[in-house]
Amino acid sequence: MTDLLEVNGVTKRFGGLTAVKNASFTLKKGEFTGILGPNGAGKTTLFNILTGFMQPTTGTIHFNGELVRELAPYKVVNRGMARTFQLTRPFVGMNLLENVLVACMSPRASEDKDKEARASYLLAQVGLGGRDKEPVETLPYGDLRRLEIARALATRPDLLLLDEPFAGLGSSEIEQLAQLIRRLHREENLTILLIEHKLREFMALVSRVIAMNFGEIIAVGPPEEIVKNEKVIEAYIGKTEEAHASA
């Protein structure tokens, strides 16, 4: 498998605060990787850097062999990297079909001759079939998440970045969405990079974990290794009493 994404020494400083510190990792085509970490670990900042919403202070990002560090967000999307947001961002005043149609206008989707049919197909793919003309304002939160994924898929990405897709969802909604993400990875042969801090759902989905804390990558490996990693346990639970006593 070839490297799809290569992140080298990426650092992001906001004045005196270092939000991301010397992050380096690679993603291979077809991989399902997750970025794990507590709130404030720098996960979303890293996503924003990858997708062009922020420029890193130092470091390089190569996507499909091309340097994408200086590119504007729309250019990053048009190179094949799509994302969803922690807070859903639908186009209010439009129906579901129109929300996905916007993304079908991107250059990567130019091969889609019948854009409406493609948008309708994607809505069906994410479990919103037959609801094309429904106004987006009426959608429950879980369905908004699905809509965001459909919109991201419409740009025909090679890499899909999902920013906390389970945030604010109930357990049944989480299970349904997890199944959808799993199916998309399998059937569409998508490379997925997922941010989440809900451990159970996260570990059941991904095949590789990048663990972060205070802006640093503290561990990389398969889920079964990461759950036993002391640094990761410490980041989530804090030091044990024995550790405190010996310190």
């Binding site: 919403f53 967000p73 916007v102 206008m105």
Partner: peptide, 25 residues
């Protein structure tokens, strides 16, 4: 047109417009 549709999206949410590949500038 596509331009009008794009402008409507920019009015709604410029960040999301950028993230679906629209050159908002």
């Amino acid at each position: 047109s596509k331009l009008g549709f794009g402008l409507n999206c920019i009015r709604q949410n410029e960040t999301a417009s950028n993230m679906v590949g629209l050159n908002s500038t």
